[in-house]
């Protein structure tokens, strides 16, 4: 059964009105996002800063209430799930800043065991602690860490604690909101491999939000590219990395630095020209038109729909040939 499904999901934030008397306005961040996620699979979500990746991740868990569309959890609309709070053990989140995600005044055992108080209220204190230590063990931290405080950890250790907290309630889905971008490159690989390892052992589904295409390539089964709150391309991993179809995806690919300094030096840079449009007054046409090298008049006036351009591949661009 499909684990998680988004249908035309839209999310916005309330911002103060333009004048003192006008009511609050809705600042739309995410528009019409649809996808499905099967158990044990990983969906990579990529896009530049401010494109709504993190907002989407929080809306998928209803940490932010969506302003349009639906999120279905195992076929059931999340808005209608009775007592959603107690079922949150099945869907967890890990964050970008691993230290900020841990309460500085609690020991690690308390941080990790805290969700159990809600999910399994029958547990005694000692049992909850044992479960916390077990979860810490799953992420490679010894029981010595149980009574330490977050400020005594390195970034990589803190992120492991964040993962342990997500695991303690035995989840089916973890939203990973840029889980490695605050870490050193050497630690990034450890955390990514840990996540993949846990996925294999526990059959977890992951939504992996990142701006790092190399990391997404390593961990994802499918890739979804977002630009200004809209999905512009959605494809299986290997097909996407073989040839990105949307001009925005291509620009992202070209922006990835080359690890070999000699080749990096000779590379012709193709930084995008043009301005990112304002979220408050989005353009009528394609969200990427103002920066797209291929943009034509059609792109500026009519928004391309997300359509199947090849088997299993969706893209939103007027200039991609259909199947």
């Amino acid at each position: 059964m499909t684990l998680l499904e988004a249908r035309n999901l839209g999310v916005g934030y309330k911002v103060p009105g333009a004048s003192l008397l006008s009511g609050p306005r809705l600042l739309p961040i995410v528009h019409e996002v649809s996808f499905t996620l099967e158990p044990g699979r990983t969906l990579g979500v990529v896009g530049e800063s401010g494109c709504g990746k993190s907002t989407l991740g929080r809306a998928l868990l209803r940490l932010i209430a969506p302003t349009g569309g639906q999120v279905l959890w195992q076929g059931q609309d999340m808005a209608t799930i009775p007592d959603l709070r107690r079922r949150r053990s099945e869907m967890q989140i890990i964050f970008q800043d691993p230290v900020a995600a841990l309460d500085p005044r609690m020991t690690l055992a308390r941080i990790v065991s805290r969700p159990l108080a809600t999910f399994e209220p029958g547990l005694t204190r000692a049992e909850a602690r044992a479960r916390a230590i077990e979860a810490l063990g799953q992420v490679g931290l010894s029981a010595d860490f149980a009574d330490r405080y977050p400020h005594e950890l390195s970034g990589g250790q803190a992120q492991r604690v964040g993962i342990a907290r997500a695991l303690v309630g035995r989840p089916k889905l973890i939203i990973c909101d840029e889980p490695v971008s605050a870490l050193d490159v050497s630690i990034q690989a450890q955390v990514i491999n840990l996540l993949m390892d846990l996925q294999e052992r526990m059959g977890l589904a992951l939504v992996f939000i990142s701006h790092n295409l190399a990391v997404v390539r390593h961990i994802s089964h499918d890739v979804m590219v977002m630009c200004l709150g809209r999905v512009v391309e959605h494809a299986p991993r290997s097909a996407f990395y073989a040839k990105a179809l949307h001009p925005y995806s291509q620009a992202l690919m070209q922006a990835v630095p080359e690890p070999d300094p000699r080749r990096e030096k000779g590379r012709v840079g193709t930084a995008l020209a043009g301005e990112l449009p304002s979220v408050l007054s989005p353009p009528p046409g394609c969200v990427f038109a103002s920066r797209c090298p291929k943009a034509a008049d059609l792109c500026r006036s009519t928004r391309p729909v997300l359509r199947e351009v090849a088997p299993d591949r969706l893209a939103a661009c007027h200039f991609i040939e259909g199947p």
Binding site: L63, S89, D103, P115, T118, F119, R165
Partner: peptide, 23 residues
């Protein structure tokens, strides 16, 4: 983020105020 994590962990509003915000 630790407050958001607490919400994802199913904590109620009053519990978050007393156990995370106040300390």
């Amino acid at each position: 983020e630790f407050v958001q994590a607490a919400r994802a962990g199913g904590m109620t509003g009053p519990a978050i105020v007393l156990q995370h915000i106040v300390p």
